[in-house]
Computed example of a mutant assay.
Amino acid sequence: MSDEGKVISFINMKGGVGKTTLTINIANYLANKENKKILIIDLDPQFNATQALLLKQEKHKLSNNINKQDEDEVEFKAEVSSAKQYKKLSKNGKTAFQIFHRTVITKNTQKDIIYEFSENISFVPGDLELSSVIAGDTASKVGLIDQFIKINNLKEKFDFILIDCPPTWSILTHSALYASKYYLIPSKLDFYSSIGINSLQNKISEKLTNDCMYQETSRKLFNLGIVFSMTTNLQSEKRLRETVIKDYDTKIHVFDAEIPLIPSASSSFLFYSEVENNKTYSNLSNSFEKIMSEFISQITNYEEELDNE
């Protein structure tokens, strides 16, 4: 397998499918269990990944520095503190907006907008203002993420660069996929999410892989597959899963494991690793371990195929 950092976009044309949660947890797994250096680029104007990481960081600081406070108080103070931190980053221009705000990426962009979360995880904060860059003529912006990565040698500094994409096709998703070698599709098991997968595949073909200028670059974009999340094991879901496999299996890999729906999970913890020894969440932990095994296997197989070409 190549030592060069792998750029992977997490994308679906429908929101609410667990995209950000999967991105963050794959980053955490690779950083802590595989000892890899990870960069998350938050390109979703809703910046949920950024909010979650800043909140987690502030909660950690408070739990270490403040004694005898109940969880609600720590949560409230962490939210206030993380919101202030984000406001400061945005005001000082230290977000992903800077990538698209400029027509040329410089080396200074790296120190401006890459924020350290932990020893092995860094991230480029998202920004509500990213929604403004999708208007007007955006043709010149397609290569900006790729340019940002190259000029700052990020593939040499990070083992994986994970891009959390918005749930719509725009210059943000176009630029992310142009810079990517792989993409992963998080999805719920419902018909609307399946429509989102169809829409995504059509857009990728129309706007990217079948584009003559893209083809001239000799780039290749590999689909790692579909990961179903928030599953409930209902019979209707099982039938839909069978339909999806029948429709896509020869074209798109469908992960065997799924992320089960656990109502308390979204508010109780950010990383699945926080509850891996908790029997209440054993189903979640075990499923995610299987997903990660399959995720790494998919990349390894693609890399070996490329090496043998």
Rank of each mutant, 00 (worst) to 15 (best):
K181N: 13
P167G: 02
K150S: 15
I151C: 13
T168C: 13
I171C: 09
A179G: 06
W169S: 03
I151L: 14
P167K: 01
L177A: 05
Y178A: 13
L154P: 11
I149F: 07
S175L: 05
P167Q: 10
F160Q: 04
W169A: 11
Y178L: 15
I151S: 15
L162E: 03
S180A: 04
F158P: 00
I163P: 02
T168P: 00
F160V: 04
D159C: 12
K155D: 00
I161V: 11
K155C: 03
K157V: 12
D164Y: 07
C165K: 11
Y182R: 04
W169T: 00
L162S: 10
N153A: 14
Y178T: 14
I171Q: 05
K150D: 15
L177C: 12
L162I: 01
I149P: 06
D159K: 00
N152V: 07
I171D: 04
A176M: 11
C165L: 08
E156Y: 06
L172V: 02
F158Y: 08
S175F: 09
S180R: 04
A179K: 07
L154S: 09
L172M: 06
N153E: 13
Y182S: 10
Y178M: 14
L177T: 01
F160Y: 12
Y182C: 00
H174T: 12
K155Y: 06
K155Q: 05
C165T: 09
Y182P: 00
A176Y: 00
D164A: 08
C165G: 12
D159P: 06
D159H: 10
D164W: 10
F158W: 02
S180L: 01
I149E: 12
N153L: 15
A179P: 04
L162P: 12
I151Y: 07
T173N: 12
S175M: 11
S170Q: 00
I151V: 15
S170I: 00
E156I: 06
T173I: 11
Y178D: 03
Y182W: 00
E156C: 08
W169M: 09
D164K: 02
I149T: 14
I151H: 12
P166I: 02
A179I: 01
Y182F: 09
